[in-house]
Design a protein around this nucleic acid. Structure first.
Length: 631
DNA sequence: AGCTAAAATGTTTTT
DNA sequence: CATTTTAGCT
């Protein structure tokens, strides 16, 4: 009966269960409903829940979809991100590549630290090299397959980095995609196993998949061809992360028997907003034509405002928010301020704070990237794996025990030479069976090793919550934090929150091991943490707004060199991506859309004259109205 | 080894 | 300008 609410195209997408299917789903075309109901329908036709695999862009989207399916059918289907899928596959099969099952996942900070110890005198090139390695991995190139053209000894550095990761029994984010592909390619039996395990795949946001994700999917569906991909080429905004828009554009060539369905009715926005967005995106030349339409009525025109500076811009937006909230009763959490760069959030925070408007910033520094959280997690990681050099380096001198760079280097070399994992090597040094270090250092190291041993003991005997607490207590971490009285309270609160999260997770998870907990935390994105349940205005980058919708949307900072960003200058391709980004921002709006720019803006430490974004000129006056300074 | 102060460096977007 | 890295001093 739920199927009656669907339009004919949506219904066809839901009912097509066999063979490859491409759903070109324009903004607001009811994509989520179609995807969810298609899975529900698959279950109804007799596909077992464990044979279905849904892949989404964020954990949050995955969780929501899983929940909806469960509500409708009382069955649980695996829906996760590509990176979680990779982690899951590696957890089962990584031994085929010579790693141990207790591997840890390095985030960018960890990876950078590792790379830095390898680079030594060349650390000026760190970013360049890190990006090159990431690009190579996303393109599925191994170290012996890359050339040294751009960076001296690149192949060697890449190889060393990969070897060092393995030495630490760690994988980086890109490995979560690359290594599963290697397993499938190098081990036919495993390929066969996974192909039979997941017979029906469904992929959301297909326009933002990269080469390794594309290959992973193609390997998995090679046998059954039951693949449904959903996406919108006009919303492809992650090419800088290796996403290849061609993956969706060439789908019908990859699968000639594919059915293609276009969802072009928009159920979200009124026509002024929608047509202005259509107009804007039509300035892009390299795209698949489509015509989104809506029958929700004309609605309000887009309101344009040019402020003197970023403070006035924030004041204007705060005023409009007040108006919508107080006069029209729009809940605060149904309004959003979008900006191009995270740094732009400052003036809004200042303004909202002084006006006492509750707000919520999505993105920026994640809870799990805070120093105190990473410190404690590093202790836990070392207790878990024993090989994690980066976790060792981070924790060995917390609290201060007199370890400096030189000593840590010595221990690292000892570990490499003896081929002992870093923790066993420390034990050997304490026992006197490895390199000789001063008595003072040996005693300090002994203290450290026994702390890790304590955590390990609690880990074996007690709950996860107790393990986290033991990591905080055995290390004397709180007194270490007290050294900085300024930040102590806040950091302590964060640690309490970590304990609470551990306790909560432990209850809601079937097999709550420390390893699984650490894995989940490393895959958590800033987006996944945000809760929209309290009534607060949402502040976020346009990138973070993908997939969301709001009654009232503000797109701020529409100025040349900011949006579009200066880095896109001169590249038609990059400029088109900026335009798609602007399109994504605009199409989030249901009822009201405001677009603002400023004449003056503090940027890179100085005040600069700003010119209005070319995107503003690309909107026809039919759909816009100027708001003057007489609010 | 560890602190403080000066200097450099960099700001797009993030799983 | 704001944060991070380095140098120089103890």
């Amino acid at each position: 009966m739920y199927k009656m609410k669907l339009n004919p195209e949506q219904l066809e997408a839901v009912m097509t269960v066999d063979g490859p299917l491409l759903v070109l789903a324009g903004a607001g075309s009811g994509k989520t409903r179609v995807v969810t109901q298609r899975i529900v329908h698959l279950l109804e036709t007799g596909v077992a829940p464990y044979q279905i695999l849904g892949l989404t862009f964020t954990n949050k989207a995955a969780g929501e979809m899983q929940e909806r399916i469960q509500k409708a059918t009382e069955q649980r289907v695996l829906v996760c991100t590509f990176h979680s899928l990779g982690a899951r596959m590696l957890r089962e099969s990584i031994e085929a590549l010579g790693y141990s099952r207790s591997f840890v996942i390095y985030d960018q900070e960890d990876s950078d630290k590792l790379l830095r110890t390898l680079l030594k005198e060349r650390k000026g090139e760190l970013k360049e090299i890190r990006n090159a390695i990431s690009k190579a991995k996303n393109g599925l190139q191994l170290s012996h397959e890359v050339s040294d053209q751009e960076i001296d000894d690149f192949s060697k550095i890449y190889g060393n980095y990969q070897a060092a990761l393995k030495e630490c029994n760690a994988v980086d984010f890109d490995d979560l995609l690359l290594l599963p592909v290697r397993i499938l390619r190098e081990h036919p039996a495993m390929l066969n196993y996974y192909q039979e395990r997941w017979t029906h795949l469904l992929i959301d946001e297909y326009q933002d998949t990269n080469e390794s994700q594309y290959t992973l999917v193609n390997l998995l569906v090679e046998k059954h061809h039951n693949l449904c991909v959903v996406g919108d080429p006009d919303q492809s905004i992650y090419s800088w992360r290796g996403a290849n828009i061609q993956n969706i554009l060439r789908f019908d060539r990859d699968y000639p028997e594919a059915k293609v369905i276009r969802l072009e009715q928009n159920y979200r926005s009124h026509t002024h907003i929608l047509e202005a967005a259509n107009e804007l995106i039509s300035f892009n030349s390299d795209r698949m034509e489509k015509s989104l339409w809506s029958d929700l009525g004309e609605g309000a025109k887009i309101r344009r405002f040019t402020a003197l500076d970023e403070r006035e811009e924030a004041r204007f937006i705060a005023k409009q928010i007040r108006k919508h909230h107080d006069d029209y009763g729009t809940p605060l959490n149904d309004m959003v301020v979008f900006y191009r760069t995270n740094a732009q959030s400052r003036p809004f925070e200042d303004q909202f704070l002084s006006q006492q408007l509750p707000y919520n910033i999505v993105g920026g520094i994640s809870f799990y990237q805070r120093r105190e959280i990473k410190d404690i997690l590093a202790f836990l990681r070392l207790a878990h794996s024993g090989s994690d050099f980066i976790a060792f380096e981070r924790t060995v001198n917390i609290p201060k025990r007199g370890f400096g760079d030189a000593t840590i280097e010595k221990i690292r070399f000892a570990s490499l030479e003896s081929r002992l994992p870093i923790l066993s090597c420390c034990q050997a040094i304490v026992d006197g069976t490895s390199v000789k270090l001063t008595l003072k250092i040996r005693e300090a190291l002994g203290q450290y090793v026994s702390i890790i041993a304590t955590i390990r003991r609690v880990m074996g005997e007690s709950s996860l919550k107790e393990t986290v607490i033991s990591a905080i207590e055995a290390t004397g971490y709180l007194s270490y934090l007290k050294e900085d009285r300024e930040s102590f309270e806040e950091r302590k609160e964060n640690l309490d929150e970590l304990i609470a999260k551990a306790a909560e997770w432990e209850i809601s998870t079937p097999d709550p091991t420390l390893g699984a907990f650490l894995e989940e935390l490393s895959l958590k994105s800033t987006l996944d943490e945000s809760t929209n349940d309290r009534d607060r205005i949402q502040l976020m980058t346009v990138h973070n707004g993908k997939g969301l919708e709001f009654a009232v949307v503000f797109v701020a900072g529409l100025e040349e060199d900011l949006f579009p960003h200066a880095n896109a200058r001169g590249s038609e391709e990059a400029l088109e991506e900026e335009r798609r980004l602007c399109y994504v921002g605009m199409t989030r709006a249901k009822l009201h859309l405001y677009m603002t720019d400023t004449r003056l803006r503090y940027l890179w430490g100085m005040q600069r004259d700003q010119r209005p974004s070319r995107f503003l000129r690309e909107l026809s006056p039919d759909h816009t109205e100027k708001v003057l300074r007489i609010w």
